[in-house]
Amino acid sequence: MSRLDARLGIWLLVAALAVAFVLLGSGLDMAYVIPRRLTRLAAIGVAGVCIGCSSVIFQTLTGNRILTPAIMGYEAVYLLFQALLILLIGTHSLILLGRHGNVWLSILLMLGYSWLLHRWLLRDGRQNVYLLLLVGLVLSLVLSTLTQFIQLKVSPGEFSILQGFNYASFNKAQPLQVAYSAVLAALACLVVRRTLPVLDVLALGRDQAIVLGVDHLRAVSVQMAVIAVLVAVSTSLIGPTAFMGVFVANLTYTLARTFRHRVTLPLASGVAMALFIVAQYLVEQAFNYNMSVNILINLVCGAYFLALMTRTRGTA
């Protein structure tokens, strides 16, 4: 029954945090403060689902609990694109493309990158997920270095704009962007919903999945596509989250005490949302925006996870 408690508990917690986040210190200002906070809350909801689900699914496919989709280089593509825009067109690019033009181009680029990577590496039945990971990692290193190279070439003003892209932030979110991000994420979730039992089988590994009658190559391709959509949506919405997903996924496994994706995926979404709300609240109220969500979450989760590992002697 503790399983049920964790599931129910996390959503009660998310609900309580959400109410507190919107109302605390708002002065009930319906004209400006509350609508803005609701937008940020919605962005947190969408990003929570994206990061929670993509991390857990990615760890299932790779059979590895210390990885997130960031290793595949999606975020590096996003950052390189932003750097190239600034280098080639300068800060005008922000106006030229408009916020939404930039977002859609980023999403399309990340999806295209993922499609090329899979086409190249999963072709002719070479079903080696580790090769995919290795190439993804090397590519993301190369792309990040390129980005750094460009950052050193631009003016200090432009450099500070680029720095802003490096950290996750919910402050950039605009209602329209949150809306279409939500639609994309919902479509990805519909696919996941239909393949929940297959995900459970994929967790047993390639051989066992084939033995149990799963078309492994096809199933992995579908899930990788879902991950690409979720990561593209969250990265374009709030920026790169790097390895935050590791904490989210591992906290989820500890709370869920089961591998079933029917349980872990919603729970991971809830955990991510709760963390984001708390971090964003602290950024806004305690640190007056002089702090990034990444730093807070990595700090708090890292400490909590270490404590968990010591207390349970590594079985967490």
């Binding site: 039992p197 089988v201 066992q208 149990l212 009658g213 799963v214 496994y253 089961t258 591998f259």
Partner: peptide, 15 residues
Amino acid sequence: LRLTVDELVAFGRFP
């Protein structure tokens, strides 16, 4: 993987 014998055997029925 964190699963019980019962759950493991149940996978046999997946096909």
